[in-house]
Computed example of a mutant assay.
Amino acid sequence: MIFGLFRKRNNNRAIVDRQYSALTTAARDPIFYTDLEVPDTVMGRFEMLSVVMILFFRRTRSSQTSGQEIAQEIVDFFFQDVDYSIRELGVGDTSVPKRMKKLAGMFYGRLETYAAALDKHDAQALSQALRRNIHPESSVEGPTMAGLATWMLAAEAHLSAVRETVIETGSVTLPAPGV
């Protein structure tokens, strides 16, 4: 019986890999960095990947068991990828767990904040939350993040129409960001 649990995870590996690749590709779309005011920095890329993961995670929260399992594996893989990236940047092994804890807290804080605005379809509140998180150093005259907020609302609407079979096969795509 216990070996069946491991086998199921291994069967999901190809699905998780395919879906994670599609999500990271979406987060790397140059338009986010050239036209939608996301800084093309390590933290800017973390922010965009977090946005994409949050949108995917929100869609799969109402999925059947298999969709939720895949979503959890993707979130786990996301944090493994972040851990690996931190180590590749040369952060010492002793400080990685502390940084990972901080980044996980940031991710789940953003999940709550963005979810509140997305649940209300409130583009202004979402823009403000994005601005606080993506441009924390900006004053009132900084980037508005309205374009990214609009894209997130459209992406969430797109994801709500995705069938369960698409989630179960790891074939979910996000709409390209508009300008």
Rank of each mutant, 00 (worst) to 15 (best):
G147L: 11
L174E: 03
M145E: 08
T65W: 07
A123N: 10
D93K: 05
L148C: 11
A104I: 11
E156T: 09
D122P: 05
G147I: 04
L148E: 04
S160T: 13
Y114R: 02
Q64V: 07
F32M: 11
H121W: 06
T24S: 13
A155R: 04
I167W: 00
M106N: 01
V75L: 12
E141F: 15
A104N: 08
E112N: 11
S66R: 10
M106Y: 11
R110K: 12
P39L: 05
T165W: 08
L148H: 06
V140L: 15
P136T: 04
E37V: 05
A104H: 10
Y108H: 12
A176F: 06
F78S: 03
V96T: 12
V51F: 08
A117T: 06
P177I: 05
N133K: 03
L118G: 02
M145N: 04
L89R: 13
T24F: 10
G109W: 02
P175R: 06
S62A: 15
D40A: 08
T165C: 05
V75A: 02
T65Y: 06
V140M: 12
L55N: 12
P136V: 07
S63R: 11
F46V: 14
L103Y: 10
E112M: 08
P39K: 06
R18A: 15
T34V: 09
E156Y: 07
